[in-house]
């Protein structure tokens, strides 16, 4: 583990140098994700000019849930973006061989290799939204709440990463799984809003099949409306551990099924 952290530092340092060189690129990337979020927030604001509440949730509560959903998503985006490249290009081109020949765990290596600063657009929006709406809602988190926040963000991030690893691993069999990853990743959009607006089928899917609701709605609802904090954090931990386990199994099977492509 210590060796891993040491290596990670080297990789990040390398990446920051790279970033300094292409500053404008970084700005365009981050701005684009920022604008995407701002558009959605404007959309919610315009709707709320007409209605007092949406399915029983007030404006700042919706903002809080929305902002909260961006935190795990943003952290995952920042750290594990290279999985997209594996799904779309690396396996297909036969470049995955490189990871197998190095003395590090291939999955670790893939993740370490890239640090996606574009994600700051999402992360910063998320942090601002959460803080601003907490002030407006006069939320005063105690020790228990802070613990829930930390646990759910860490394990929520793990849910995103696990879904990505699992979809990405499919590429080992079919060479290119970017579109499958795209479908699953996009389904996290459902979790940005209170899941009480959906019908039972959708609710079940985003809670227990692709459990993105645990990355945002459930923890946010606990922080807003109260409830059993231990149950909320525990459920998130349990579900994300299970899905992480499944994704690692798929990944390992994928690696053993992997036959190099290309010449």
């Amino acid at each position: 583990m210590i060796r891993f952290l040491k290596l990670y530092r080297v990789f990040v340092a390398q990446f920051i140098k790279n970033l300094m060189e292409y500053r404008i690129d970084f700005l365009t990337g981050a701005t684009s994700f920022l604008i995407g979020q701002v558009t959605n927030i404007l959309f919610i604001t315009i709707i709320f000019n007409q209605i007092p509440s949406l399915a029983g949730w007030k404006y700042y509560e919706i903002m809080f849930i929305y902002g909260y959903s961006l935190l795990p998503k943003g952290i995952d985006h920042l750290l594990t973006d290279n999985l997209w490249n594996v799904a779309y290009f690396i396996v297909r081109k036969g470049d995955f061989d490189k990871y197998l020949t190095r003395p590090i765990n291939p999955l670790m290596h893939v993740i370490m290799e890239k640090f996606q600063f574009d994600a700051l657009g999402e992360l910063i929006t998320g942090i601002i939204l959460v803080i601003y709406s907490s002030i407006k809602l006069k939320l005063t988190p105690g020790f228990g709440e802070v613990a829930v926040i930390l646990i759910t963000i860490v394990f929520g991030t793990l849910i995103f990463t696990s879904v990505k690893i699992a979809c990405c691993a499919i590429a080992f069999w079919i060479k290119r799984s970017g579109s499958i990853l795209q479908i699953f990743y996009m389904s996290s959009d459902f979790a940005r809003y209170p899941i009480t607006i959906y019908n039972k089928g959708v609710r079940f899917i985003i809670s227990y099949v692709i459990p993105f609701a645990f990355t945002s709605f459930y923890p946010a609802a606990y922080l807003l409306r109260g409830g059993n904090g231990i149950l909320c954090a525990g459920k998130t931990m349990l579900i994300s551990t299970v899905i992480f386990g499944i994704s690692i199994i798929i990944w390992n099977r994928g690696i053993s099924a992997y036959e190099s492509a290309g010449s």
């Binding site: 579109s179 990853l181 795209q182 479908i183 389904s187 959009d189 809003y193 607006i197 959906y198 019908n199």
Partner: peptide
């Protein structure tokens, strides 16, 4: 076609999110 339909289904998801909203 596979990558196109990936995007397509993603967009359809978004449409349904909007539907429920």
């Amino acid at each position: 076609k596979a990558s196109f339909f990936g995007f397509f289904i993603g967009e359809i998801f978004m449409c349904f999110v909007m539907y429920f909203i």
